[in-house]
């Protein structure tokens, strides 16, 4: 698949990663345009059903990113997100979902360059994996 341009959805928190991505812009650091960002108040708000729906509707990769541990604007939302991910990850793996397509990261409001790197790495990684047709086919039946 030489010209495959993956669709990546990013679920980010408002206070750290969204602001970090703003800083990437303010610093004029370029990154792959495959990414579409959805803003949440906190990673703690991110329901993992959203990830499954994204795959079902044709996303090839997903980024979930929020504040570093201890830096959460709401004290502990990112810890809940991390804990949820730890549990959900093995469940997804067990069910046969390709967990290499989900990237969980911490990007602070000061890490504009890191955000560009996370996006570019994810795009590269998903390009190697190719389009995620399996789940899309499966998902069409229930979404």
């Amino acid at each position: 698949m030489p010209n495959f341009e993956p669709k990546i959805v990013a679920f980010v928190c408002n206070w750290c990663t969204y602001a970090g991505a703003d800083l990437t812009g303010t610093s004029r650091i370029k990154y792959a345009s495959n990414i579409r960002i959805i803003r949440f108040p906190c990673t703690g708000r991110i329901d993992f059903m959203l990830l499954l729906q994204s795959f079902a509707l044709g996303a090839d990769g997903i980024i979930v990113s929020g504040c570093h541990p201890n830096d959460c604007h709401y004290t502990s939302g990112n810890f809940h997100a991390r804990r949820r991910w730890m549990v959900f990850r093995s469940l997804l793996d067990f069910m046969g979902v390709d967990i290499n397509r989900i990237v969980f990261s911490w990007v602070s409001a000061a890490e504009g360059a890191k955000w560009a790197q996370v996006v570019n790495n994810t795009v590269e990684q998903v390009k190697k994996l190719g389009p995620y047709e399996n789940y899309k086919k499966l998902g069409q039946s229930f979404f």
Binding site: D22, T24, Y31, S33
Partner: peptide
């Protein structure tokens, strides 16, 4: 601006 025009080149995809 921050999430699109400032971080991507001038092209159709942007």
């Amino acid at each position: 601006r921050e999430h699109c025009s400032w971080v991507h080149p001038k092209e159709e995809a942007t």
